[in-house]
Write a protein that binds this DNA or RNA. Sequence first.
DNA 1: TAGAAGCAGATTTTT
DNA 2: TCTGCTTCTA
Length: 681
Amino acid sequence: MEKIYLNLNEAQKEAVQQVDGSILILAGAGSGKTKTITSRVAYLIQNGIPPSSILTLTFTNKAASEMRSRAISLLDEDISYMPLMCTFHKFGLLFLKFNMQYLNRPNSFVIIDTDDKKRIIKSFNTDLPIPLINSEISRFKNNLLTPEDAQNSAQMPNFKHIANIYKKYEEYLEQNNLVDFDDLLALPFKILDQNEELCKETSKRYQYIMVDEYQDTNDLQFKLLKKLSSQHNNLCVVGDDDQSIYGWRGANIKNILEFKDIFENTKVIKLTHNYRSTNNILKAANELIQNNRNRLGKKLIGTKEDGKEIDAIHHYDEMMESRDIASKIKKLILDGVDPRDIAVLYRINALSRSIEEGLNRAGVPYKMVGGLKFYERAEIKDLISYLRLIANPHDDFSLKRVINKPKRGLGKASVDKVLYSAFLNKTSVFTYITSHQEELEKEVSKKAFITLQEFAKNIEDLQNSIKESTYEFIDKLEDTFGIRKYYQTLPDSLDRITNIDEFYGLFRDFVLQHPDSLLDEFLNDIALQSDQDQIDERSISIMSIHASKGLEFEYLFVIGLEEGFFPLLGDGTDLEEERRLGYVAMTRAKKELTLSSSDSRYYKGKRTGLSKSRFLSECGATKGSLKIDRTTAYKKGTLVKHKIFGIGRVTEVSKVKRECKLTINFGGTTRGILASFVERI
DNA sequence: TAGAAGCAGATTTTT
DNA sequence: TCTGCTTCTA
């Protein structure tokens, strides 16, 4: 018990000891949230509550595994059974594995990701934008609307059309035994809602429920939580309304703002002591967030020294900006700072490019968090499709992806023909190839027919092979289809080959660790894996602000503080959410924070003039700002490089409107060129 | 059928 | 600017 209380402040202790009833823990940035939750889990267990009746829900696998390991270290004796600590989606998956029969569907389903979903939508040949349909379908599911509901409520023709696509999409998923991310929440809710007994039983099973990052829950998650806690109301949610940054994907900030009104006798505990940042950083963050009206209201209290003033830097353009930041970072590293304690954040991924270039030029190694995920890479998705197809040959979706990859001489015409015939016969493509051979032979060329037969045979062989030896299976897969070999022949194959090898390794590891598991367990496991644990490289990090949530860095740079970029302005802009995003960004910094803005940026193929972000003045970071004008970077005699004209020497510097014009001598020929078109060397 | 070329459209954040 | 898609050509 002593161990649990070690290093907890009064508010944290109170949160840990409050066992029963509904509890709202408002945990400000850096206030020891994870510590509080894990201590609470340990406290519950030490007070005799069986681990099996505790459920802790998080939003990321990373958060879940971190909590798991921290809870273990708090418990004195080894416990044989750890409480379930997982993401909402993983919980949904587990639930469905046990209860899918309530919907008369097999529990051997496979999870599809957003990319797959979009491809399916696309296959319905619509001329409406796919992202719109994608988000509408999500909205329908999260509002528990059936395709019929959607069709009935649609007024405009376009929305009728979307509702029809939704219907087709749902049919497609069911026929192919697939579920999407939204289903992992919606289907469990549906089952619980329709089966009162099961609902009671489930709720009784999880007597103590805790939810992390509660500000990010959406309506459906809220409803699901109500069902799960219906028998006991022991629901403890932890979150920070000021860090709600996922409104755009359906998170409802009202869930946390109105929690205490919805659940009676809610105990509210505020954790406001910040153990992360210096006072100057906190002061600026507090000032920024104070401009929001829609909040519960709390002010972070510092526990550290004042530290350095936050630094606002300003540059002529993004090239100057990245050069300056790269050299600042280089200096920090030379001064002995661990690169892992340094990060650069941006609001939109497009801004990563200039920073990457600057770091590359300065020779500073970096890792980009987020970006294209491992499991989203084409070569990995190909492999996954093969595995899915072997797990379930009737998965037309996966079949379509790999039927001619590696190229085996099947053209679009032949493929379309088979797809269409299978559709007319109401069978899967695989069944059509294997059981409608006479028809198929007439429909496609001899060569295509043989290829298709061989393909189907290969899939069947691999199905048998996996039953015999899962471990050797992966070699057999490669021998049969030669995916690695195929990618080797493609340009810039090195990364892809590395990825493929890593995937093969992952599969082997999984087989070793779960020798009795089925292929679709592996597939579902990886479908929920977002970003794999980062390798502990000694390099600085660059990432979007969203990706930085929950992380902290000694030295932090936030770039792109201009109106239009941050806050990002557009039709769907929620200015308060943008401001919360600013708050999240600033509170990632422990020691030194630098906010950077630029006069102009090259974006979407053109240069745009920009003005400083309102956030800079709102957080009081305008004074002391340092303007580095491009004209000071170029002077007579500076060597520059132009993409077409090559290397030249500046003979004159002048200003034209906001741009900086250089007169450059390229080996005897003098030209007038805007500074943005050349690079300093 | 497969590669090349040309064209249009899109560029926020992601479990 | 870049990507992904369609059309064109060998």
